[in-house]
Structure formats: structure tokens, C-alpha cells
Design a protein around this nucleic acid. Sequence first.
DNA 1: TTGAAAGCGATACCAG
DNA 2: CTGGTATCGCTTTCAA
Lengths: 361, 361
Amino acid sequence: MSTIGNSQKGRKRRPRSHARPSAAAAALQGLRGARMTDVANLAKVSAMTVSRALRHPAIVDPETLKRIHGAIEATGYLPNRIAGSLASQRSNIVGLIVPSLRNSLFAETVKGVADTLGDAYDLLIADSGYVLDREEAAVAAFLSQRVCGIVLHNTKHTPRTRRMIQSAAIPCVETGNLVRCPIDMAASFSNHKAAYDMTAYLIGKGYKRIAFVSLPLDDNDRARERQSGYLGALKAHRRAIDRNIILESAPGLRGGAEALIELMKKRPRIDAVFLTGDVLATGALLEANRKGWRVPDDIAIAGSDDNELQEYVSPPLTSVRFPRYDIGCTAASMLLKRIDGVPSAERVVDLGFQIIPRAST
Amino acid sequence: MSTIGNSQKGRKRRPRSHARPSAAAAALQGLRGARMTDVANLAKVSAMTVSRALRHPAIVDPETLKRIHGAIEATGYLPNRIAGSLASQRSNIVGLIVPSLRNSLFAETVKGVADTLGDAYDLLIADSGYVLDREEAAVAAFLSQRVCGIVLHNTKHTPRTRRMIQSAAIPCVETGNLVRCPIDMAASFSNHKAAYDMTAYLIGKGYKRIAFVSLPLDDNDRARERQSGYLGALKAHRRAIDRNIILESAPGLRGGAEALIELMKKRPRIDAVFLTGDVLATGALLEANRKGWRVPDDIAIAGSDDNELQEYVSPPLTSVRFPRYDIGCTAASMLLKRIDGVPSAERVVDLGFQIIPRAST
DNA sequence: TTGAAAGCGATACCAG
DNA sequence: CTGGTATCGCTTTCAA
């Protein structure tokens, strides 16, 4: 019957070790590690009511709500989502895997996803380094973390990756290429068609010998699609295909510059180059400027993945614009719809692309 | 006494709704949602032994281990880290907050963190949009998620942000600027000194009227530090300070281009500009090229955050190089050390920077 | 080297 | 509108 207070009810148990760094300090600050029960005791309600106050405030008495919020404030309570997720069997974490965190292309998509997810969801990110096995490992890690959805940039996967995601039965959107048979859903554009259209555009402008440069095709389904789009356009227009002017290049400005140099050395008769991927086209253009090769008179240059830089160089680059930010937004919103149980319209969404003609061709 | 099998022991309970999408299908595939108990039953051991097999294989009998791995394979078991984290009171998720996911500067640091964390930790990422209140919200979300450590790019925070992190008592590294009093730890370089040194370098090259352009100082401690470094160098060299040639610019190539135009219009007598932040310097250089202003004869241009592009434009840009990738690596490794209980050496690590003189000055 | 029991902190369900 | 109770799936502890 002490008159000291009823603090008894609040803190009991915790017999396992878990040594909290000084219960005294915690009490002093009234902050460290308050649990829902602590809030409940302070507000003279049950933990359940606190839980409701947080999740469905509308069905809680306004007065009660006020007391609870006061208690939350006083204790510095931060809900434990680990416990919440375990109990409710649902998490609010979305996983995203890109081939490279460095590449600012992907940053656009990441930003679209993050913006669309908003405050209600958190974003787990991993980098597959363009390696399928690393993607698989990241997927396994994410599934262990029980993410509520996955966004993959890659559209080529190991069998186990597909199996794991399908078994987990969580929504998944692939964004790197418009695939016919997605694991689950896809939001993207057709790399094949983009390359086809750009090549056709160059042919239409009257260029006779058009070279093609991309990143290495190995494990890179996007690059592969683009090369096949280029080849398709040549065939459709009955142009000869010359394997000598089809290159795979290292990434970076230097990669593009070196590719151009090689092409000009080997086959001076080419009159146009389409460099797709990374910043290859910009690298080539800057190199042409340095060498004094006139663009487009000596050599026309077209790029892809349009950005502010391609618009600002001289001459500005003809390019294909991909809606990467929108793709991120769309991917996230497809995920959210599924999570919210909205009957899904389409599983594969084509966001298209746009050829931007400029002075370099 | 059925002779059908002992599958009885495996699947019982689960009376709450949680309707798993068809237990039959699950059984068929033998995959969906196996729990540790299921693995244990199949391997004829207790769940505890499975747990040990996963976490401390060395202390489990090799034969037992083999059976357990077989069972894991057969069931497609993926450990549930939510449950694991709740039980062990520790998570393996690190949280990272950058001002902008779009900016490739930050991508370097993100990559450094991700690479260093390796497979044992997952990375939660948020974007504060350069707004302190959004940083605070992200920190609250991360703490709710019970991250085991936090990396912040910002070094200016709301009081509540600091309080939350300190109360949570988890390791935290700030990376955007070398702060004297970090919340916990810091790994960075001095923005002040970098700007000071670059300004002094320009003075040493004989430039008389040096303009300064940065991103808006508002809520941006890095930009603030850089401006003060510039001012400090001018003072130290007894140069007059002219507020008319100190600009805050919008980001992007366009921002840099417009800043240069404004400076040339207003004060044609300036002979050098130091543009720091984003891609401002590159934008200015490209604009100078377009306008036919000779660099460095008409106007010298220096930048910061050196990258491949600054090296490739003509003339190549004098710049300051920041070790952003290393900063990410260092930040992550400081976090890991603390998590592993390694007695921490220094709380603040200065990674330095490097002035790269090129033809633009 | 292995197992049984008791939590971790929240939520679902049902009763009041 | 509110509370009691039984889990969620794993790890800690302690005993065998």
C-alpha cells in the first residue's frame, strides 16, 4: 500500500538479460525504450487501446485519444514495427534491387519509387552489381526481412530468384525492360523498340553506315534488347549488317570516347553512331569536339537516356528519353494497389519513350 | 494410431485467421512459408537446434547439420528475421538518409556504405529532400523499424532528431561535413577548408576578382560552410569582399549557366568564378563555350566535386575532389565496429579532399 | 551437443 | 468504445 505511486504496474518482468543501458537513466529521461504497455499504463488504458489510437484513431474516444497522445509524448514512445509486423504478419518495407547504385539512371527510378511510397512504407535497397547471383542473394535477404513487395530492375533472373518470389507470393514489379512474362508485374518501356526507332530515325535522316555501341551484353538483357532493335531496323530497311561497326564498350565517358576513336580509325566511312547506355554518347561527342571532328557533318552521334547534359553539350545530342522517374512511380503504385487488394488492371505497363531530335544528327 | 505418417506434429495450430493462400498448394509445393519448426520436424530435431545450425554451425553435430540443411532445402525455408529480431532485440538493418536520391554525388556514398555493409546487413534508404523536418520523419521511421545504426548526410538537424537518436542509443555517423559536435560520430571532410583552399589557390594563380556561386544556403550546412571558407580566404589575403559577386544558384547545368551569365552581365570585370555544388561549374563552362567566352583567358572557372565529366570537358575543369565513396565505407565500418562492440578509436574522422588543377584556371 | 520453457512487443479476435 | 487472451516465429536461458 505504498503511496509513492502506481508505477509498479508499468515496469515489471524483463527477466532475460538484455541489459538496457541503465534503467535509472531511462527513468530520468522518461524516454529510452518505452513500450506500448508503458504508454497504456500512463494513459490508464489497455495496450490494445493504444494500438487502436495509433492505427484507427477514428474509433477511439477523443478524450482517450488525447490522454494517449499525451502519454506518447511524455514517454517518447516510438512504435516497434518489428513486433507489429510479426503480430500482424505484414510489413511496411519495400525492397528494391538495382544493377548499380552509382549509376544516376537508376537514381531516377529509385526516387520515383521512394516518392510514391510516401511515409507509410520504408525502402530497402540493394545493388546487384549486374550479377544475377547477387540479385538472388539480395532477394533472399529481402524475403527474410519479409518485405511486402519487391521492385527489380533486372528482367533476367536465376531460376531460384523467380521461384523464391513466386513462393513468397508477394507483389513484384520488374522495371528494366518490358517483358512478356514477368515474374509478377512489369512497368517499363521496350528497349528493343527504342533502339529500333532510333535506328530507323537515323536511316530516315539519310545516314548510310550507322554504327552501334552498347554496354557489354553479358547478363544485361537491356543491352541485348537494344542491339536486337538496332539489327531489326537495319534488316527492315534492307541495310547490310557489318559486325565490325557493332561494339560493346566499357562504361563511362571514356568508354564512349574510346569507342568513337576505334570506329573512326577502323571504318572512316561510317557516317553515324548510335551509342546507347550509360554516358557513352556524351563521351563520344566530347571526344569528337576535342579531335575537331565535326558533328554531324563528319559523323552524326545519337544517344539514349536523355538528360540535361545531352541537351547542354555542343551540339546538343539527339537522344531517346526514357520515363525513368515515372517508371519508379508506376512500379510503386502497382505494388501498393496489390498490397491494398485493389483488383489489378494490367500486369504489364508500357510507359513508352520519346525520340528527341537535336543538332547532333 | 494412424500409420499415415507423423506429419501431425508439423502442422497444427494457426487458429487466427491469417488465411494462408491454400494450405493444400503449400503442401504440394512444400515451399510456401515454412517455419523453423517445420524444418526442425523434418530434420527430427528441435527448433533450437535449427536456430543454432544457422547461427553457430560450429557447435552443432555435423550429421545433424547435414539433416537440417537437407530439410531447409526441402522446405525452401527462409528465416524470418522479423521474428528473429524481435526475439534477439537486435536488427541487421542500417538506415541511411540523403538529401536527394537523384543526385549522383550521394550515390557514391550510398555505394560505399552498401559495399562495406556486405551481405550481413540490409540498407534502408530515405530522402530528406533537403528539409530538416523530413529528415526527422525519416529518423522516426527508421527507429520504429529498429535499425541497428544510422548514417546521415546532413549535419544540421532538428532538436528532436538529435534527441531521438541519442535516446535510442544506436550508433550514428554524419557524413556531409566535418562537424565538431556530432550526434555520435562523423566521417567527412571540411567543406570550409575545401572552399578556403580553392579560393586561396585561385588567388595564388593571380586572379583578382573571384566570384563565388553555391546552392542556396538555406537549411544547407555544406553550402554555408563553403561560402564561409571562400570569405575566410579572401579575408586572410586582404581581398575586398563584394556581395554582388556572391550568388546562390538553382541546381543543375542550367543553374550554373545562368549564374555565369548573370555575373558576366553585372560585373564584367571578374576574372574568375568558383562554383561549388551540384554540376554548377560544368554548366558554367559549357555556357562559356557556347557564348564564345575563352576559359581561362576571359574568365577562369573552378568547380568542386570532381568527376569524370569535369575532366572530359574542354578545357578540363580545375576542381576539388571529395572522397565520397571512402566516406561511405568509413561511415559503415565505424557503425559496424560499434555494433560489434569494438572500442571506438576516434569519433570524428577527416577524410580530406584534393585540389585538382586543370586548364580552366 | 541438444531440448523445454519463457519471453520479445505488438495485433487479431472476441467478449463486454 | 474498451479490454483480455492467445498468438506471430524466433532466441535466450537453463537444464539435461
